[in-house]
Design a protein around this nucleic acid. Structure first.
Lengths: 423, 423
DNA sequence: ACAGTTTCCCGTAAATGC
DNA sequence: TGCATTTACGGGAAACTG
């Protein structure tokens, strides 16, 4: 059951990193009368400085002029394809950096302008357009913040260039935001978020409520303020998971084997009455970019017991892919290794049926050595009981894992005379 | 027993990477009569192009002029400290790149010139000096080749600037080279190579001989030709081990717990009559940058059996430090996990005594999760005998691990009027 | 002192040149 | 085509800077 998840217009990076090449293509959408000379287009960064002083100024380090040419593929439009453009910061020596410390760099919006001039029957005509707002960063560590800005802007305004948007950013309704979040996952992984997953995220932001539809999130709560008791914001947490999926969990995520966003309470309610050894996969809420599994066992008196492993993060996962961790995971009690406690992926899929095709054999046969592999293992002492948090209250409903509703949201592209892409 | 290993003159990097900053300091060794104006020094890359055409041309991208000043610390010498210098390749459009494909980039030697001019009593005086030969690389993957060139040059010539050195590089005697190799290890790790280790390296180059003292190695055999049957040269192999030590084995190497350079034959001779579970650590000869352990067991009929694990390379070691691998290594036979087969580091040091202080506890207690660790494990099927190569012939002598002789070799520094350093 | 931001540069991958 | 070399840039860490 593959989820319908095809963007109508894939979201282009609207984030540019200084010192890293980018390219942009401009198409003239109106047909010009015959112009017998070559039409030159020029691109400028932040040509018209926005009203409020900006924090930083950049310039295009590389050649920013190019002759337009006729593109075969789009019925002879005039186009120009700028390549190998590169941004560098203009160091302002004396000028006081404005902006009064209100905005962070990823809230600062910039724009790329395109200009051309030609004469027709003695009349000089200027053509000009410019891009949607751009975020400029200097290190990939700023990408999550940049994405948050791009999302918020796209979600909450149709204005083509409101450079002061983050001066007083509007709130988003949970309806809007949850759709956008699902869309982010869809775009970057191939699978979005289902109703239950979104519900858990809503609870994270607003607490338990019958419906989050009427809730509103401020920009600050979304991205700038830390989650209560955690050293990171909601978006930083969510984005760390997106990255983890992209790099280490893609096929398993796309096969829908990661429930992921599920509260510990719901997790217990789901596993409570299942076969011993039934487990599910859940993203860590306490640490950035972590995934854990929780399985259910039964005491001698028939009481359900839930055990979660310390979350695996990118470092661990690059040593050993997650499917292999699930395959080979062992618990050692008093020095004895019983079999893998993980038997059935919730609700009742035999482990190997779910993950079998993602196992890496990784047994290299290098004569005359004996092969060696890393086995993920937890060590317990039966004298010490497993520390397990007290039974939490029940939650409203069970997961309906099959019912997933996702609608891609449209990204507005501003073009008057020109049409442009930025890659 | 700490090995004496103090370089009298630490070897400075004489390798410059394009696009990466370097700095150089020049000291005027003669006292000038009073000069009442500021003395400006200029540095130029490859000022006088060598006779034979060079493959590549570079220039100093950054400011290459600086005023000299009096250095307090060295009794008022005039010095200049160039910083943030950066090299860029000059792209030669039309000119045929000379050099006829004879030399690789790391065999191409360059030089940094320093010039100053002043007038005294109406006489104009030019001061000029230049650096020892430099190797220019564009990627760190070329560093091993660069180091080989620097070593060979330093080892075999006292000429201050023989730019054509690698046009017909002289051979090195094993006496010279082995000393240089030990010195490389000493400089970069803190521990050099003992007699037995060097002997093994000599055998690798020359085959088994009573003495290698009279053997000669060509530059090509050292660094350019692949070892018979292997896809890498002698130096590339040795350097990969040097890197492995630097990044993953430093404390264990410096504690002298890694025999490392030992043939499989010698290994067996050493372990043959030792307690079962005695093991030693050896670098892989078949793969770049790998380390393995071999331990001895005894058959029911008392015959010694040697088992080696598939070598660990940097990827594995960054998932799990080598000391922890040794600590936790397990062999699973028919699904049963017996205890760690590694008991005594050759000759008879209890494992934990040798490696105990390098163990990482790595048991993180994160409530409410149960901790998990990676356990290195080999899986065997008792129905299949361990594949073990046939008993090799005995080797001349046992290791004398205590007798280590290392003498640092001196690096010549050319200075006539000036003295310079390159960092 | 410190947090936000940029710079630096290794190391891998991809592109380029020969 | 294959090999040698350079370029590109993510990612961690150090340096910078108000």
């Amino acid at each position: 059951e593959k989820q319908p998840c095809m963007p109508t217009h894939p979201q282009k990076p609207l984030i540019i990193k200084t010192g890293v090449q980018f390219s942009t293509k401009v198409r003239l959408l109106v047909k010009l009368p015959e112009v017998d000379y070559q039409l030159k287009m020029k691109t400028t960064f932040d040509k018209d400085l926005p009203a409020g002083r900006v924090n930083r100024q950049f310039f295009i380090l590389t050649n920013n002029m190019k002759v337009m040419d006729f593109e075969e593929s789009s019925n002879g439009c005039l186009t120009v394809d700028f390549r190998h453009l590169q941004l560098k910061e203009k160091k302002v020596i004396n000028g006081t950096k404005g902006n009064e410390g209100l905005l962070s760099v990823t809230e600062e919006l910039h724009t790329l302008s395109f200009e051309a001039n030609f004469s027709i029957q003695g009349i000089s005509i200027d053509l000009e357009t410019c891009s949607l707002p751009l975020v400029v960063i200097s290190n990939v560590s700023q990408l999550p913040g940049g994405w948050a800005s791009v999302m918020w802007y796209n979600l909450l305004t149709n204005e083509p260039r409101n450079m002061g948007f983050f001066g007083s950013p509007p709130r988003a309704s949970w309806n809007q935001l949850s759709e956008a979040l699902g869309w982010q996952f869809c775009t970057f992984t191939g699978r979005g978020l289902n109703k239950e997953q979104l519900n858990m995220l809503g609870e994270k932001l607003f607490g338990q409520q019958v419906s989050h539809s009427d809730c509103q999130v401020s920009w600050s709560k979304f991205c700038k303020e830390n989650i209560l008791g955690k050293p990171f914001s909601f978006w930083m947490w969510l984005d760390s998971i997106l990255e983890l999926i992209k790099k280490h969990l893609l096929p398993i995520w796309n096969d829908n084997y990661i429930m992921g966003f599920v509260s510990k309470e719901t997790e217990r309610a789901l596993l409570k009455d299942k076969e011993p050894g039934t487990f599910l996969l859940r993203f860590s809420e306490s640490h950035l970019g972590g995934i854990t599994f929780t399985w259910v066992e039964h005491n001698d008196n028939g009481e359900a017991k839930f055990i979660s492993v310390e979350p695996y993060t990118k470092n661990r996962l690059s040593a050993l892919p997650f499917a292999d961790i699930i395959r080979n995971y062992k618990v050692m009690v008093d020095g004895v290794v019983p079999e893998n406690p993980l038997k059935f992926l919730y609700p009742d899929i035999p482990k190997d049926e779910a993950f079998g095709r993602h196992y890496n054999s990784q047994q290299s046969k290098v004569f005359p050595y004996i092969p060696s592999m890393l086995v993920p293992m937890s060590t317990l002492d039966s004298a010490l009981p497993i520390c397990s948090s007290p039974e939490p209250p029940m939650t409203p409903g069970m997961f309906d894992m099959l019912n997933q509703q996702l609608r891609p949201f449209e990204i507005e592209t501003a073009h008057i005379v020109f049409d442009y892409d930025i890659n």
